[in-house]
Design a protein around this nucleic acid. Structure first.
Lengths: 112, 112
DNA sequence: CAAGTATATACGCATTTGCTCATATATTAA
DNA sequence: TTAATATATGAGCAAATGCGTATATACTTG
């Protein structure tokens, strides 16, 4: 979000949509599972502990958002992270999460 | 999101919730409006073109997420960005948005 | 205290979204 | 072609969420 000029309505909707796609624990789990390389739907279903239908749906959502890409090989479809900003984004949020947890711990156990 | 160990369920929910808070155009507009310093509710209501009730609600959401902080001065309440990762996050998403728009433009107007 | 201003909140409604179950669509193999 | 496997999708339901209207709360001033 550039500081110079505010985003117009359409751009804001696109940015908001992008955040919305990342706003589901199951989708974050899928992204996490793909950090170390591509996996097919069955593998992802097992890894995340979801139903096949639900995992497939979330994968379509991530594809539509251009966060993942797919490669078909016979019966199987392999998914991988296609947007390089995604890992950075996740790390940024995670870092701030860790910080606030530390701060909380500090408040629970003050120095005096 | 650290690559070493996957986040547990609770951490995933917290991260997802953080993204969800950023997944509303009106809240992004508020954040944008606060990039150049604190503003009170009336100012924000005028700048964003929302109703007072709605703006107030969104501000409470952003406060609960520790993205904004508030300062009361008499009748007025001033809000400001309190989480330093927010501008970085927005820039990251915006940058990727610009890139994909350029790519799209490129496809619409190929070199040959 | 009464009136006026700034902000927050309760309520109800409409929309969106995630989930499950069942089924459809490939693709491969017999 | 038939059966089996992997993935995608349609239908319906329940929960979450955003918004407007009206009202409540807090603070200031006369």
């Amino acid at each position: 979000m550039p500081r110079s000029q505010p985003l117009n309505d359409q751009a804001l909707e696109i940015v908001a949509r992008r955040f919305a796609v990342l706003a589901e624990p199951m989708r974050l789990r899928l992204i996490q599972a793909l950090f170390d390389g591509e996996k097919n739907v069955t593998e992802l279903t097992v890894l995340t502990g979801g139903t096949q239908a639900n995992i497939s749906r979330h994968l379509q959502t991530l594809i539509a958002a251009h966060i993942l890409a797919r490669r078909k090989d016979g019966l199987q479809v392999f998914y991988r992270i296609s947007d390089p900003t995604i890992p950075k984004l996740c790390e940024l949020v995670c870092g701030s999460l860790e910080k606030s947890l530390k701060k909380q711990a500090g408040h629970l156990n003050p120095s005096r």
